[in-house]
Design a protein around this nucleic acid. Structure first.
Lengths: 148, 148
DNA sequence: CTGTCTATTGCAACGTTTCGCAATAAGCCT
DNA sequence: AGGCTTATTGCGAAACGTTGCAATAGACAG
């Protein structure tokens, strides 16, 4: 039924799972297919919904457990949006963070170099290596701060 | 039934509510009493549980709604723990952040001055005024980073 | 003290995510 | 192809929060 082969890094997931004593199942294949088409950010609920589109018998807990496994393989990373809900970084091409303005509600990405400045500040004071992509930093953007 | 008056800033909450056209109710009094004894950090679930101890008829949604109101008055601030769950900063004596090591699971507070370094780094690059207390920064602590 | 206005409550249902457990089915060996 | 082992699944329940709505009850004016 599948017309095209999955693009890397998704093409060899089945072998990588088996190499670890884990198993390749149709449910996992569904999640992988959805992820392969979803580069960027997706919430857990979105992922479940898209899987259900392909396979109406999809069970949420299976999706979440598959995501856990894929995170161990390094294929996705989970983080948390401004409201604390789960958010998955798919195929993280580049490390980046997220900013969210509590006043106007807008969000921005925090690119590599600028994220590095934050990471450096923490490393210098605490020796702490922050995972900048894990949480959404909340505060007020330049414009809202100026207006208040 | 209450033996002692509430300490500031809790002593005049009723008047401050009324001054805004809001109301002083027994349910809100219960939440205030619990908060007055809980300086520091408390999760939403803990707050509900402690309220239920005083008043078994406590309803969760009422507690959460009261917390929203108190946040508007500036008496509490909500944030998110490493797992994204809600966490309330009660009577924030000093602004501070939180660090959590994903490897060893320990957590630390990020005091005023060190938090300022992070805030400065962001302000310099984006003009973004971070609310450092809102989220728990996740990463690896000095020891875990060294060991890996 | 009574009446009016509307903020708040209680309740029930929902959304997101996690967990335990018994049944199923991958993977592998012969 | 058949059998064994155990990773996964499906399912139900639970934890944490949020939301809509009708009923209740603060606050204030007269």
């Amino acid at each position: 039924m599948r017309m095209t082969a999955l693009p890397p890094p998704w093409d060899s997931v089945d072998d990588r799972l088996r190499a670890r004593g884990l198993r390749w199942t149709p449910q996992r294949a569904t999640v992988i297919e959805v992820l392969a088409e979803a580069d960027g950010h997706v919430s857990g609920a979105e992922l479940v919904e898209r899987c259900r589109l392909r396979d109406p018998s999809t069970i949420p807990s299976t999706v979440y457990r598959t995501l856990d496994v894929l995170e161990e393989l390094g294929l996705v990373r989970h983080g948390h949006g401004p409201d604390g809900r789960e958010e998955f970084h798919v195929r993280p091409v580049e490390e980046h963070g997220h900013l969210h303005c509590a006043e106007c509600g807008n969000s921005w990405e925090l690119g590599n170099e600028r994220a590095a400045a934050v990471a450096d500040a923490l490393r210098a004071t605490d020796g702490f290596e922050i995972d900048i992509g894990h949480v959404t930093l909340v505060g007020r953007c330049r414009d809202c701060a100026a207006g208040a």
